[in-house]
Design a protein around this nucleic acid. Structure first.
Lengths: 231, 231
DNA sequence: TCAAAAGTGTTCTTATTACACCCATGG
DNA sequence: CCATGGGTGTAATAAGAACACTTTTGA
């Protein structure tokens, strides 16, 4: 048995659906595979889990190696383990998603030049392995979770306008009808954990919007009073 | 040891939180370990995944070996993979929960005599490995899921009374205040997928209750009309 | 002065909550 | 005839949905 065959006899990996939002569309970060199997195909970033590495740590490492970012939101979603999902042996993979502020990401760092790319979620197709299925699971999870936990803010810069926030929700949820501006604002502000900064947008060719930020302490209070985030 | 050899020493297992309901309390099925590590301790039923076995199939096998039951509700919850969670090596485990009709289960079949037992969820403590944590995750998932999908019926016999159904929800959700009988009935009946059988309870020392059953076809219609289960 | 997005309240409809008494049966 | 749980309706409140115009800015 060759070394490669031995290596892949039985192993586990992590794969990471890295979500970003550029103001218009929900995107994910894909890599182009440089080696077999599926050489040249687009895939989710992932790696085998090291023998002395926790699963969450492996997912965080994959993310950091690709983007340089630490301490981002990361959530385990599901484990995929079909017998034949990997052509070279039995490899199960634990799928994660992470949410990053896309502006923090310096596009395609040197080591990954021409091999990683942001792609609109709605344009992704025909990924390597079972990654289409993994993406579908992670996207479904995100859609649910974003309505029941204050995750959206992880995708926005620290200061944002309410329209940006709403556009984020519209992109993620992708509902047949967009959210109603007035109802959205009323609801999110009534929860009381968005605070107005003393600043407005600059350099826009229209009335500049107020900037808000997410106040985590106030969110904790909100929870302690028995309320739940629900949008 | 080479890095390649290190990967070899890893394995993956499934563990299964098997929920049942006896009319009063929510229970899970535990086994007493007959071998090291944690010999004699109570644990979730589980096993290593065979090389040519899908993960879901492994979870179903564990369940069937213990209870004789097939085709039960089974859902993957989360994968636990701390480096030191297993004393004998790197073993990650994929946690599942399943829902069975407890009356179908012939208590402790021969091969497991004195080694498996139904335990009230609220009484479970100090399980082997990280199984306390696994149980907590599965219970949290069940609590959420039972309100947003018609899972409760998996725990009841095919024909049941509305009071039994409500007691099931009270047990699973374990809310500070019990559900209101009239509101519960109004809501669940308004969804239109519970059908009245032409039968009533027998042998009870009070007015016998009507029996109902869950009509899966009507539930599908309900979904197709754009409604969602929400309790 | 125009274009473009920001900002703002009210009404209507629907869902949720709270709540108490009579009924049918077996013992 | 008593004890036990089964079965039922209404009113008050809260939440959600629908909807259009004025304001501020830069070009």
């Amino acid at each position: 048995m060759s070394e490669v065959e031995s290596f892949f006899k039985s192993a586990f990996s992590v794969d990471n659906v890295i979500f970003g939002f550029d103001g218009g569309d929900l995107k994910i970060l894909l890599i182009q595979r440089g080696a077999a199997p599926y050489k040249g195909k687009w895939a989710l970033p992932g790696d085998l889990v090291y023998p002395n590495e926790d699963l969450d740590a492996a997912a965080a490492r994959v993310l950091e190696q690709l983007t340089g970012l630490k301490e981002v939101y990361l959530e385990q979603v599901k484990t995929f383990g079909s017998v034949n999902r990997h052509p070279l042996g039995r490899v199960i993979t634990i799928a994660y998603f992470s949410l990053i502020k896309i502006s923090n990401y310096t596009v395609t760092p040197a080591s990954f030049a021409q091999s990683s790319q942001w792609v609109n979620v709605s344009d992704v197709e025909d990924l390597a392995f079972d990654h289409d299925e993994i993406l579908a699971s992670c996207l479904a999870r995100l859609k649910r979770k974003v309505r029941t936990a204050p995750l959206g803010f992880e995708l926005l810069p620290p200061k944002f306008t309410l329209s940006e926030l709403q556009q984020l929700y519209d992109s993620v949820l992708n509902l047949p009808k967009k959210l109603d501006k007035r109802n959205f604002r009323k609801k999110i502000l009534s929860m009381g954990f968005l605070v107005e900064c003393d600043e407005v947008q600059e350099g826009v060719a229209h009335r500049p919007a107020k900037l808000y930020s997410f106040d985590r302490e106030k969110y904790e209070e909100f929870l302690n009073e028995g309320y739940v985030f629900d949008l």
